[in-house]
Each structure stands twice: as C-alpha cells, then as structure tokens.
Design a protein around this nucleic acid. Structure first.
Lengths: 254, 254
DNA sequence: TTAAACCTTTACGCTACGTAAAGGTCAAGG
DNA sequence: CCTTGACCTTTACGTAGCGTAAAGGTTTAA
C-alpha cells in the first residue's frame, strides 16, 4: 500500500503539515517523490511514523527522536531513563503547583482577598517548602534538625509586616552587596553595613542568634554552590565577598 | 526605593529582557520613564511583579495573568479552578507516560530489541489502556463488564501477525470510508464492503460476535462524541454514514 | 576624560507546527 | 473534451516567552 500525504495523515491522525514538516527536518522522508512532485510513503514509513509518534507521546522532542530512530547504536535505554527522570521532576513540580493552587482557591473562597493573609500564607508555605527542598536535606545533615525546624517554625509564625520587612531587607542587601563588592574591600564601611543588615535579616527567621552560627552560615554560603549561585547573581565572587565581610564584622577573620 | 531594569532584575531573579518584554505586552509597565528614557520601577511595581511571578509559577500564561491582575472583577476563583483541572489532567497524562516509559525501558533491558515482541506488547498495553480510558467506563456501565474484559483479554492474547493485520484493516477502513462516503450511498457496494470489513475488524478483538452487538456498537459510534470525532476525521457525517452502512449490512435498518 | 557598565530600540532565533496564498495535478462527471 | 473540485506543491508569516546580538546613547567612577 502506498500513501500520499493526505492518506497517511488520515490513517495516522497527524496533519499534512506535520508530515511535510517531518520531511523538511529530515525526521521522516517519503519513500519516493513521484513525477508530479508528490510525496509517496510506503509501509516502512508508516511503521517509522508510528515509532515517531510513540516517542512524541512521551514528550521527547523531535531532535531527540531523530537521534533515537536514526542511530541504532544510540543508547536508547539511557535516553529513556533520563527522560523518565525529567517526567518525574515535572510531576513533582505539578504536585506542588496543584497544592498551591488549591490553597489559593481555598483562601479566596474563605472570603479573604488575595493580597492579604492567605496569599501571604501561601507565599510563606512556598518559601518554607522551597527552603526545605533546596537546602533542607544538607542543612539537616550538617547542622542538625533543630536548626532547620526552628527556622521553619519561626518563619511560619512571622507577621505579615515582618515578612515584608524581611523581604525588603533581603532585596536591599542584594543591591548594597553589588555596590560594595565593586569597591572590593570587605572591611569597608559599606560592606560592614551589609554584614549588619545580614544579621538583622537572619534574626527574622532564626530562633536564636550566635556569632558562631552566623559565621558558619557565611562559610556555607561559599561552600554550597546553590547559595553561591544565588549571591553570585550580583557578581562573580560576591558570595566570598559577603562571607569575608561577615567574618570581619564578627571579628572572626581567619 | 526606585529600581532600574537591572536592579529589579537582580532582586526578582528575572532577566532584563523579561522586564522589557512585560512592559512591551503591557503586563508590567514601569512607574515612569526618566529623562534618558530609562525605565524606573517603584515599590508598587515590585509587588505587582511578585504577583505575576506567583501566577507564572503556576504555569498560567501571561495573557491570563494580565486579566487576573488588571481586572479585579475577574473571577479569579473560576480561573484558578479551571487551571487546577488543567494541571490535574497534565499530571494524569504524566503518570501514564511514566508507566509507559518504564515499561519500555524494562522491555529493552530484557534484551528484546524494540521493533519486536516487547515493543509490540507495549503498544498493545497502550492500546488496551487507551481503550479502557476512553471508552471503558461508559461501555462498562452501558454494556456490562464482560464485554469489555473479553475484548481486552482477546486483545492481549492476539498474535503479532494478527495485530498488524488488524491495524492495517483499520487503516484500510478509514481510507475506504472516505471514498464511499463521498458517493453518499450507504447501500452502495463499496459501503457494504466497508461494513463487512468492519465486522472482520471487530472479530479480531471481540470474543463473540452478534448482529445485535454490532448494531449496538454502530449506534454508539454516533451517540458518543469521541467515536464521532474519530470517524468524522474522514469527513463530517462519516460516522452516521458508517452506522447506516452497518445497519443495512446487518439487515437491521430502521 | 575615558572606560566600564549601564540603558535604549530593533530584530532575528527557538519549537512544532497552523494557516493562508499562489499555483500545479488528477479523477470524475457532464 | 472540458470543467470542477479535491488533492498536491512551495513559500512564508504567526504563535509564547523570552535569549541573544547589534548599534548606539547615558551614567559613573577612576
């Protein structure tokens, strides 16, 4: 059986445009072109298309599908496994999104307008959740459960005004850090101001404060690439600069 | 506090391009433009951006976010609820994809090359699963469990050769249906040929065949929009045409 | 004063097609 | 034989949400 574009489209369920596109990008070439320039597909192409659609269903992008079906030495298992990981991540993310949406709906239906308490609470939950997700495990193992739980508990109990103030302070620190970093001296007045503000900022979420803990956190900032990535958004090396400023501020320079 | 593009980008984590884009589409306009044409944002804009990013996290598209935040009378709850449905669907789909991927990996690691048995089995499972999902519930309630289970069992036990033959036959029916439909007469030879082939096709998956069941199925094709959508791919009205042809074939025209 | 680091607008690129537009081909009916 | 209509072709613009130059003006600190 031979198929023109329309016929193949009919039995496969994809559009004619899709078939021409797949031809164009070299994903599925017709068996031959007839004298009038028509694309003619054979049984082999029908089978190939089925394979392609199988992977497409799995949300593999066309470029990868091309590799998978064209290169038989390509490690399909590995590709599928990493693809599975991707799907799992997507699902985990969806789960969280759904929870947040549900919470938001509930808060609205509770008669409390977005803007206010519940939205704020949703944000807090999200914040805690993200903190927990990003840093929880490692911090727990390195610094003990109490620290983390205490931080979360404090965060949960925080007032809306404080929350906003804390956020603003966090923003301010980022901006100031940029300016101070450009001067290059962690002992400078501006850098020491940042360290002070950073302590203030920490106080919002920390149950108890100690110089040692502050210094330890500063060291962790540098050691943990996720913190580094965050503060280095300001500039490369800003994380180390912040650590140095804090250590000097605490009188704990090495 | 006032922010230029770069500063707002820094504290919010989005790119400068994103902010300019949001300005461009009217999602987030700066508080003012200074004498040099620079965008200047204030605290209000920072708050708005936070809201925007909140919804963006939920995978709401920017157009909808615009509606949500710009029109306070807009029914946010409804929007969020339908959005929740969307997310739920996505997740259900992901679950199935993951199962299929896992199965495919297992089949490959079992040493059986794709192309062959296991891929074929995966396809069959998928087919059964899809049938079950699409029509299972309704068919079960309307026509009883045995019919469905028998169909699935038969499908599971089908041989590879038969499976291919069945698929080919299904394709052929679609193509023939198109041609016959264009002639417009369900009593025509070509239409009756289709009815015969349709019976043949059914026999592949049905445990037992009866005219009544065949006629009932034909009626269901028309009654159920999912079947209608499938056969109407050929042409509008093709489903009814198919039913009429089958009824005539069975000698059961009303 | 000069370089670096910002800022601006314009515009093309990305995915996987949908959707015309402009024109050639083919089978069926009159 | 001719027409009609359904098919076929290529070209090309549009979609969402930006990334990424390019080309040029502004501000800031040394």
């Amino acid at each position: 059986m031979e198929y023109t574009v329309k016929k193949l489209a009919l039995i496969s369920g994809v559009s004619g445009r899709t078939l021409r596109y797949y031809d164009q990008i070299g994903l599925l070439k017709p068996a031959r072109i007839n004298s009038s320039g028509y694309r003619i597909y054979g049984q082999k192409e029908v089978d190939l298309l089925q394979q392609i659609l199988f992977y497409r269903e799995l949300e593999v992008n066309l470029e990868d599908i091309k590799k998978i079906i064209s290169d038989p030495t390509f490690d399909q298992t590995e590709a599928l496994k990493s693809h599975y990981q991707l799907l799992a991540q997507k699902r985990a993310r969806l789960d969280k999104l759904m929870a947040t949406v549900k919470g938001t709906i509930a808060s609205i239906e509770g008669g409390i307008p977005m803007q206010d308490k519940e939205k704020f609470a949703a944000f807090k939950d999200k914040l805690i959740e993200e903190n927990e997700k990003k840093y929880g495990e490692e911090i727990r193992s390195k610094y003990g459960d109490e620290t983390v739980d205490a931080s979360n508990a404090k965060l949960r109990g925080i007032s809306e005004g404080d929350f906003k103030a804390m956020n603003d302070l966090g923003e301010e620190i980022m901006v100031l850090l940029k300016k101070a970093y450009e001067k290059g001296d962690p002992a400078s007045v501006s850098a020491q101001e940042i360290a002070a503000k950073h302590k203030q900022w920490l106080m919002y979420s920390w149950g108890s404060y100690s110089k040692e803990a502050h210094a330890g956190l500063a060291e962790m900032y540098v050691a943990d690439e996720r913190f580094t990535a965050f503060y280095d958004k300001v500039a490369d090396g800003a994380t180390e600069f912040l650590r140095d400023a804090i250590l000097i501020y605490l009188g704990m320079e090495k």
